[in-house]
Design a protein around this nucleic acid. Sequence first.
DNA 1: AATGATAATAGTAATAGTTATCAATAAGAG
DNA 2: CTCTTATTGATAACTATTACTATTATCATT
Lengths: 134, 134
Amino acid sequence: MNIVNKDRRMTKQRQVILERLREVKTHPTADEVYAMVKEDLPKISLGTVYRNLDILAELGLIQKLEMAGQPKRFDGNPHPHLHGKCIACERVVDLGPDFDFGLDKKINGFKVLDYKLEIIGLCSRCQEKENKLK
Amino acid sequence: MNIVNKDRRMTKQRQVILERLREVKTHPTADEVYAMVKEDLPKISLGTVYRNLDILAELGLIQKLEMAGQPKRFDGNPHPHLHGKCIACERVVDLGPDFDFGLDKKINGFKVLDYKLEIIGLCSRCQEKENKLK
DNA sequence: AATGATAATAGTAATAGTTATCAATAAGAG
DNA sequence: CTCTTATTGATAACTATTACTATTATCATT
């Protein structure tokens, strides 16, 4: 594993968290990751999960999604892409490549360095359900 | 006051919270609103502030800003507009009218009903400071 | 393979922000 | 003025997350 350097060690816990997160296309919360990983490592502690999710995000191996007013979610795919939050089923789904919002430009004198775009709506699955009810 | 209806009463507390929030161009947190309002109503409780901020937002008289990973902030201006979060001074500043992102369209089958755009960068004040240091 | 420095762990306490509970109070319709 | 009940202050509870600490495990160096 190439994430090992003088400051970081690859522990079993860190490895399993990363593997598990990569296997899955949902965007689990720390609690959900905890539940998933406990299947392999029943003795792992929740603090360890939080710590490692932060470290893995810091290393750029995963993504930390901070949705407004909700628990953070984690994405095994580290490449930036757009996320949609379904108001019906509460799932967070991938919507493909992010917009090129354009960084380093200015809006009203404010220098844009980064941005977070959160799409809220209905996933295709819930739209179908909605249509059947009519 | 026209906010009064069969379910809502205009209490002194609610009134002061609204007035105070309207006077100010910052985007205070619930705690900060609490401090501001206590000047007029020393006996008000924090719970009352939270409750009324929610109700006022629900009535469309103010805006609740849910920034990713930070305490909620409140805006006395209920009209949608873009906000920028300065990474240097931590202030939230108004950036003028929001983009017309386009609602009810679909992205990859996902029906867009709403969205939240959060700009992160440097406010003009902090850019000046930065330039002086060079 | 054994050693040693120290990163990481499990378990738990602590914190921040927010929401819920409830008896007492007060808005405002009649 | 009276009555209904929304609202309040005070406080407990709750959720998500971070901090603390003695013990354990990784891994570079022997």
